[in-house]
Design a protein around this nucleic acid. Structure first.
Lengths: 138, 138
DNA sequence: GTAACTGCAAAATATTTGCATCCTT
DNA sequence: AAGGATGCAAATATTTTGCAGTTAC
């Protein structure tokens, strides 16, 4: 695990710091998406709130994580797959939000169908967020 | 127009007040979704920020408007179709966000395809947000 | 007249910025 | 050693809450 983390940071041309390692580790360990608040709470060594903001922004910039839109104002972040590169995030899978346990997960295996738009519209990205009850809660 | 507004408020069992009328009018006039900030800026008579928050919440509760998720932390609101009832919002159309002009629109005519989830998952609602370039900007 | 709505003040929360210090390379 | 990252302080922005005065019905 530590190997994997360091390698990922190196590959993204980021210096390997404690906060980055620990926050990245949290993402790798978690199989659901994390909100800013989750990260603040779950890191054992507490990092400054500002550091968390900046780290998430950096990870976004480098294409390490992506955001998942939600209807309430709570943005969640999840790891990008290898296919994502800096500045070229391509997220072709479905996101699922469980209304019971509140977890947000990437359903990597479910692909997004193509959606035909009216004349004149150009599509660059499609997001699908399914709400319902997850495997564990049902 | 004023008729329509009053009627809609009555139908939702809300008392007809100035702020509600003006905010609802804004939604009816606008063909794209509005953020809290848009409403604050665009109402000629300025209402207190708190009133805007409370009015939006009330409209949500009554099923008059619905939220549209975005990847940045900017929630947008749009009018619900007649099929939406209090507590039973059903939003079966696609949302489009233009990356040039920033407007968010409901594409009422584009329906959301059914998405098959893995065993054990139950779907209650599906949101589709397409980003790209809109009719007017292309 | 009464219940509900609004505006103001203020509290609570979230996010951004500047800068001095520390850490990675 | 140098550039970048972090932590702290503080500025800014956002959202919520309480309450007194006002308005709709």
């Amino acid at each position: 695990m530590p190997e994997q983390i360091t390698e990922l940071l190196r590959k993204s041309q980021l210096s390997v710091t404690d906060s980055r390692k620990k926050i990245l580790e949290l993402f790798l360990q978690s199989d659901s998406a994390l909100a800013h608040h989750d990260i603040e709470v779950r890191t054992k060594e507490k990092f400054d709130r500002v550091t968390v903001y900046r780290t998430l922004q950096t990870f976004m910039d480098k294409g390490i994580i992506h955001t998942i839109p939600t209807t309430d104002n709570s943005i969640k972040y999840a790891l990008c797959k290898d296919s994502c590169e800096q500045g070229h995030h391509h997220d072709d899978h479905v996101h699922f939000i469980c209304s019971l346990c509140g977890t947000t997960t990437c359903l990597e295996e479910i692909h997004i169908p193509e959606i035909k738009l009216p004349r004149g519209y150009k599509t660059t990205q499609t997001e699908v967020i399914v709400s319902g009850i997850c495997k564990l809660c049902s």
